[in-house]
Design a protein around this nucleic acid. Structure first.
Lengths: 341, 341
DNA sequence: TTGTAAGCGTTATCAT
DNA sequence: ATGATAACGCTTACAA
C-alpha cells in the first residue's frame, strides 16, 4: 500500500496560511521574507498558522519571480572512482550550504554529448554556474558553447578556452616534500614517478630536481624513474622492476619519493619482502593522502595531501563571486607527517 | 572584468520565440512538448526561432504548473570519506539521469539539526523523494517528521521507524567467500573480523561458520578473531597481534578471510615480512573491493565487492516507483576473483 | 491546426 | 501596517 502518495500532492500555499491567520497573503509573504513593517502580533499569528499547516515556501515559484535559482551545477567526469571526487564535491557542497545554495551533481561519461546534455539540464534549471571537476589533474575539452553559464574547472584546465581553473601545485608539493627529506638527512632520494604523460609527473619531477639544486645536492638522473607505464592505453605499474634496479645501484637510494600512495604501498610491500624497514633503513614520502592507504600502512606514510577539499571550495567561491577572471590558480598541497620519514 | 554577468540575466521565453516565429506562444509550447497537431511547417518555423534565440524551457515555471519537480534528494552522512559514497551516488545519479531526474546532493554532519536542515531544503524544492545514504552498513536515526517526503535508506536502516532500506547481504557474502575457499582446498580458514559492534562483523561471522558447517568442516572458535577494536571511541587495528597468535597455533591457518581490504593490506604486509607468499603458502580473501587496494596489492586480492552502485540504483528506483513498501532489501555482493586464492 | 484565457505560488508595486 | 493587483514563464482547458 502506498503510504504517502496521496498526501504528497497537497502542498500548503501562502494563501492557505493567510486564510488560516485571517489576513491577506501578502502579509504572509512579508513574514516569510522577514520584511519590516509587520505588527509583532500579526507576525505571531502568521507564524502559528505556518507551523500548524506545515507550510514551506515553494522554491520553484520563488525562482520564477527572482530569476535566481540558488542552484549550482557540479559536473564530474568519471574517469576513476577515487575518493578524490567525493572530497571535491564535499568542499563545494559545504560552501554551497553555507551560502544557501544547492548543488546539483551530474556524473558524466567524458564524451561531448554527455557534457552537453548535462549543461542543457543545468541551463533549464537556471543554474547560477557550473563546476566541472576531473578526477586527476589533466586537460579537458568542453563544448564550445557554454551558453554564458559561468564555469570553473576544478582539478583540470582547458588548453583551448579561457576558463578559470584551479589545480594542485604539483611542482611546489614535490619541491616541499623533497626538501623535507633532505632536511631529515636523505642524500640519495629516488623518484618513483607516475606515467610520464600526466601533468603531475612532469611538475613533480621539476620540483624534485629543483629542491636538490636549491639544497646544493647533486642528484644523478638515474634516481628519477617512472614506475607507471602505458601499454596500449592501459596503465601498468612496474614498481618491482624499478626498485630492483635502484637497489642494485652502487649507491642505492636512502629515500624514495613515490608519485602516489598506491606506489608507496607497493614499495612498502617490496621492502618488507627484502627485510628493509621503512622509516629506519629508508625514508618514504608520497603524494595524494588517499584515504585509507597512508594511515593503514605501517609505519604510517608521510605524504603530501592534494587539496581536493580546498579546490572544491575554491570552485564554488568563484561561482559565487560571479566569475571575476579566467586565470588558473594553483593551490598548495599539505604535508601530512607520519612515520615513514 | 566580469565576462558573462550581464548576458546571463536575459533569458528567452516562449513569447519571444513566438514573436520571432510569428505565431502564438501556445504553439511554441506545443512544439516544445512534442504535442501532435502542429503543422510540420509551423514546427519548423518554431524550431528555427528556438535555435536562433537559444531558448530553453524554464524548469521553475514548468515545475509550478506540473507540481513535479524532477528533483530527487541525496543525503549522505559523512562519517568517512571512502570511495563507497561516490559509488552509491553514481548509481543513483545514473538511473536518475536515465529518467530525466536531477539529483540534489547534500552532505551532512550526522547530527539531527543538519539532517533537518537538509530535509527542509529538499521540501522547499518539492523534491520527489530522498535517498539517505550512509558510508557503512549501520543503524541511523532520522528526524521523526519526514513531512511525507518519500524516503529510502541506503546502506543503513532505521531501528525505530518503518522506512524502506537496502543493505548488502553480509551474511551471504561471507558464506559465499568461505565456501569458495573451502572448495579451493582451504581447511583451516581464519577470520580477521571487523569491530564487533559493526553489523557486517556479526553477519559475516555467521556466514563464515555456516559455510563450514554446510561443508561438513569443523572449525575451532580460536580461528575467528576481531582485528579491529575500539578504544575510547577510536577504532584501532590489531592485525599484527592477532596474526602472531594465529600463526603460533599448533595448526596455523591455511587461509584468511579479512573483514575489509585494509585489513588484507596489513595482512599482506605482515606475511611479506615473514616470507610467507600470498596465493601460494596461504589463501587470502576479503570484503569491499575498495578501489584501489585490491588491484594494487600483489598478488591481486580476491574480494567480495559490496554492491554500492547497485544499492544507489535500487534506492533511486524505489523513489521512482513511489515507495511501494517499507521492507528491508539485501543485495548480494559479487566475488571478484584475483590471485590471492 | 491554432489561439485565448486562466491559473500555478510567489514577489514587486502601488495604494490604503 | 496591511492589502489589492500585476507579473514571472509555463501548461491546461476550452474556443475558434
Amino acid at each position: 500500500m502506498p503510504l504517502f502518495t496521496l498526501i504528497k500532492v497537497i502542498m500548503v500555499t501562502i494563501k492557505q496560511v493567510a486564510a488560516r491567520a485571517g489576513i491577506s497573503f501578502k502579509t504572509v509573504s512579508r513574514v516569510i521574507n522577514n520584511e519590516p513593517n509587520v505588527k509583532p502580533e500579526t507576525r505571531n499569528k502568521v507564524e502559528k498558522a505556518i507551523a500548524e499547516l506545515g507550510y514551506r515556501p515553494n522554491s520553484a515559484a520563488r525562482m520564477m519571480r527572482n530569476a535566481k535559482s540558488g542552484v549550482i551545477g557540479f559536473i564530474s567526469d568519471e574517469v576513476s572512482t577515487t575518493s578524490a571526487s567525493i572530497e571535491i564535491i564535499k568542499g563545494a557542497q559545504e560552501l554551497a550550504w553555507q551560502h544557501s545554495k544547492l548543488l546539483m551533481v551530474l556524473n558524466i561519461k567524458p564524451d561531448d554529448d554527455s557534457v552537453k546534455k548535462a549543461i542543457e539540464q543545468l541551463l533549464q534549471f537556471r543554474a547560477e554556474g557550473v563546476i566541472y571537476a576531473s578526477m586527476y589533474h589533466k586537460p579537458v575539452s568542453l563544448p564550445k558553447d557554454l551558453h554564458n553559464l559561468p564555469t570553473v574547472l576544478v582539478n583540470c584546465f582547458s588548453p583551448t578556452q579561457r576558463i578559470a581553473s584551479v589545480v594542485p601545485d604539483d611542482y611546489l608539493a614535490a619541491y616541499d616534500l623533497t626538501t623535507r627529506m633532505i632536511k631529515k638527512g636523505a642524500r640519495r632520494i629516488a623518484l618513483l614517478n607516475l606515467n610520464k604523460r600526466i601533468i603531475a609527473a612532469a611538475e613533480r619531477q621539476k620540483g624534485y630536481f629543483d629542491a636538490h639544486y636549491a639544497a646544493g645536492i647533486q642528484i644523478d638522473d638515474v634516481y628519477a624513474r617512472n614506475a607507471v607505464i602505458e601499454e596500449n592505453g592501459q596503465e601498468r605499474y612496474i614498481t618491482e622492476n624499478v626498485l630492483d634496479e635502484l637497489l642494485a645501484l652502487p649507491e642505492p637510494p636512502d629515500a624514495i619519493v613515490c608519485g602516489k600512495d598506491q606506489l608507496a604501498m607497493q614499495v612498502y610491500f617490496y621492502l618488507a619482502q627484502k627485510g628493509i624497514v621503512v622509516g629506519k633503513d629508508i625514508a618514504i614520502g608520497s603524494f595524494d593522502n588517499m584515504d585509507p592507504i597512508p594511515q593503514t600502512l605501517k609505519p604510517g606514510l608521510s605524504t603530501m595531501a592534494l587539496p581536493h577539499l580546498d579546490m572544491g571550495k575554491w570552485g564554488l567561491q568563484y561561482i559565487l563571486e560571479g566569475q571575476t577572471h579566467t586565470e588558473q590558480v594553483k593551490l598548495p598541497c599539505t604535508f601530512i607527517e607520519r612515520q615513514s620519514f
